[in-house]
């Protein structure tokens, strides 16, 4: 009887342990984007200077698209990293910022203080953030020359991560 209980218990419990064990190696904060390996969602947004930027305008050169806002603390930490990276990859990569739930006037004031690293596109309805599947800021998408998303990064970028992400598309 005891042996039978043990066998039945093992049959019931082991699959559960296996399912839970599979998740142990994963970072619970990281959610894989289904967009990696797929063409980036089309967008047509206006930057702070009033210029229209479309996805197709980015074709031909790798791009780094960063969703950010001034109220997001990691974005503030990330900002100098992006300023430096934009300078370092000036002719090889296009750096595009998409403003997430923030006011253009606040962004203008912030950029005047901290420096800009690329055009900041206004996404008033949040539609572009939804199309890219943005959970929260900062989130960064790397696009290759053809406009395919090669990587998505959640959280504040550091210089080594920027280099590693861009190495794949250069």
């Amino acid at each position: 009887m005891n042996r039978r209980v043990l066998v039945v218990g093992a049959i019931l419990v082991l699959p559960l342990v296996w399912v839970l064990g599979m998740g142990l190696g994963k970072d619970p904060k990281r959610i894989e984007s289904p967009l990696v390996g797929k063409p980036a969602p089309a967008f047509e947004l206006v930057d702070l200077a009033g210029n229209t930027v479309r996805l197709e305008d980015l074709a031909g050169k790798p791009a780094l698209i960063n969703f950010w806002s001034t109220w997001c603390v990691p974005c503030v930490y990330e900002h100098p990293v992006l300023v430096a990276a934009a300078r370092r990859y000036r002719d090889r990569v296009q750096f595009i910022g998409v403003i997430y739930q923030d006011e253009p006037t606040t962004i203008r004031a912030y950029l005047a203080r901290s420096g800009a690293w690329g055009p900041s596109l206004i996404d008033p309805t949040g539609r572009t953030a939804i199309a890219f599947g943005v959970y929260g800021v900062p989130e960064t998408f790397i696009l290759d020359r053809s406009g395919t998303i090669t990587a998505k990064y959640d959280g504040a970028l550091d210089p080594a991560t920027v280099d590693a992400l861009l190495a794949e598309v250069l």
């Binding site: 959610i31 289904p34 599947g133 959970y135």
Partner: peptide
Amino acid sequence: YFETSYGEFI
């Protein structure tokens, strides 16, 4: 549409 952007988690 939401699933293609966010994954099944959505």
